[in-house]
Amino acid sequence: MSAASLTSFGALHRLNAIVSFLLIAAAWQLVAVSGAVPAKYFPDIPAIASAFWSMLTSGELPGAELRTLTRALTGLAGASILGVGLAVLSDLSPVFRRGFAPVAALIQPIPPAALVPMAVFMLGLGPSLYAFIIILVTVWPPYFNGVAALAGVLGEQIRSGQMMALGRWQMLWQIKLPAALPEIFAGIRYASTISLIAVVVAEMLAGHDGLGFLLIRKAFAIRIPEVYALMFVCALNGILMTALIGLLRWQLTGWHMRMTEQPA
């Protein structure tokens, strides 16, 4: 369970990922070259790579990527803070918990795509539109996990806090929140994928800027290699986001991961 075995585990996983990626690329190239699918719809790897490169050098892609990532990250941060805050509030006040539960149950199933057209009118095309949509769809995983985790803090832990005569806030800050953090992070990780989806959908429908808009514009211009390259960037964003969350989680709840993670 030492750090060495942990890193070798990580390296093995990374090797697997690289092999798998190369296999996909090879299979893709084979299909493209064999001509089983019309080349117009299924370009080969060099074509996609050159499309990627030309979008990169023209500044089109970096600009859109920066906008999309900034929106997703700020939205996720806001949603996480709000979600945990609401969970804490629910934990402190049963009245709030009972009242907020039906509101959450009703808002949660609304697809972000359905909100975009209405929100464009109510909020315009500025940052508040994206903030509203991302927060409204990503606040739930941290909130639900937070409520469950805060309610599930072990009796022993609470009693040892009481024994040390901790006040209500000290108890929350020093015992309940740290104990709930691992589960909250699982919620935030899930929220991070939703936030990326919500941003891309909002951009596709708001039709103004960002990766989603670029994707739709290229698709309607029938620039197929560009579309595939953009899809690749979208998937890459997800990996980036997961890695970022993983890093933050390690910083904040490393003690818990070292305790429970069983490499090998």
């Binding site: 798998s20 994928t193 698709a219 979208c234 997800g238």
Partner: peptide
């Protein structure tokens, strides 16, 4: 083990991003 990273990658691709490609086919 070989397919797992591929699934991870597909999982991060937002479904709406597939729309343009599906439209072609």
């Amino acid at each position: 083990r070989l397919v797992e990273p591929m699934m991870d990658m597909l999982a991060t691709l937002p479904p709406p991003a597939v729309v343009p490609i599906v439209m072609l086919f």
